[in-house]
């Protein structure tokens, strides 16, 4: 890091610690991250290194950020490289009492793993396709400026995404992933209901009944107010006409 970069780094960190508005801090971090991304992209283009990682979809959408903040057991669930890791299995064993109570959770988690693996494979395919498209644009173009590299990167990525994401197998896998997540959420809700019952806490059903009741009350009150205002208005009109 040279002196200029060091000063920028210090100023950047200083601002993140300061009392400037949080939205400014978020924007600075976004620009810093994307600046680093484009810097690395252009370096890799210049050196002829592999570019496929620059179209990693989860990374682009922000799913890889702050991985350290996630619990180890959660990360291991989505880490398809660690399926056989004994320490991961040991941590997963802490789920055993729940899995025994709810065998469908085990099935759903296994399905989730499969679907995430499938989506990861699609994303790899997308990255490779984007790289091929980029190479074509790069080879066929006259303009070798950094700006054009970035434009080509974007076009290659969006074109590859459009191709892959509209395929039936991609859509089906994505939908199955969403449905599996829904199943897990439902199992979680069922589990919470059971625990609430055991501990004498209000059930989800009773909370929902309250919410529905409150909602209904609000609607009835608003309708009543509207009818009253309409009637008052009509009466005023009548009085004006009579007088």
């Amino acid at each position: 890091m040279n002196a200029k970069e060091h000063n920028i780094f210090e100023q950047f960190n200083g601002l993140l610690q300061s009392n400037i508005p949080d939205e400014y801090k978020d924007i600075l971090q976004n620009f810093q991250q994307q600046g680093a991304f484009y810097q690395q992209l252009l370096q890799n283009i210049e050196s002829g290194d592999d570019l496929s990682s620059f179209w990693e979809l989860p990374n682009s959408l922000g799913f890889s950020i702050n991985q350290q903040a996630q619990a180890e057991w959660l990360r291991s669930t989505f880490d398809t490289n660690d399926l056989q890791n004994p320490s991961i299995s040991a941590q997963a064993n802490s789920f055993d009492p729940f899995i025994k109570a709810f065998p469908q959770i085990k099935g759903a988690l296994e399905t989730l793993h499969v679907k995430i693996t499938d989506m990861t494979n699609f994303h790899s395919e997308l990255s490779q396709l984007a790289m091929q498209k980029f190479q074509v644009l790069h080879d066929e173009g006259d303009d070798l400026s950094n700006e054009q590299h970035c434009v080509n990167w974007l076009k290659a990525g969006e074109d590859a995404f459009a191709e892959v994401s509209q395929r039936d197998d991609y859509i089906q896998t994505q939908n199955e992933l969403i449905e599996t997540l829904g199943e897990i959420k439902n199992s979680q809700s069922t589990l919470i209901e059971q625990l609430s019952k055991t501990w004498g806490l209000p059930s989800q059903q009773s909370l929902q009944d309250l919410q529905k009741g409150l909602h209904q009350l609000r609607i009835e009150f608003a309708e009543y107010k509207e009818k009253t205002e309409t009637t008052i208005n009509q009466l005023k009109t009548t009085v004006r006409k009579l007088s």
Partner: peptide
């Protein structure tokens, strides 16, 4: 790329200067 980095860094400093005077 060095020139690109310089240009980007200069622009980023301008952004930071703007935000520092919030």
């Amino acid at each position: 790329n060095n020139q690109y980095d310089d240009i980007w860094q200069d622009d980023f400093v301008l952004l930071m200067d703007y935000f520092s005077e919030s």
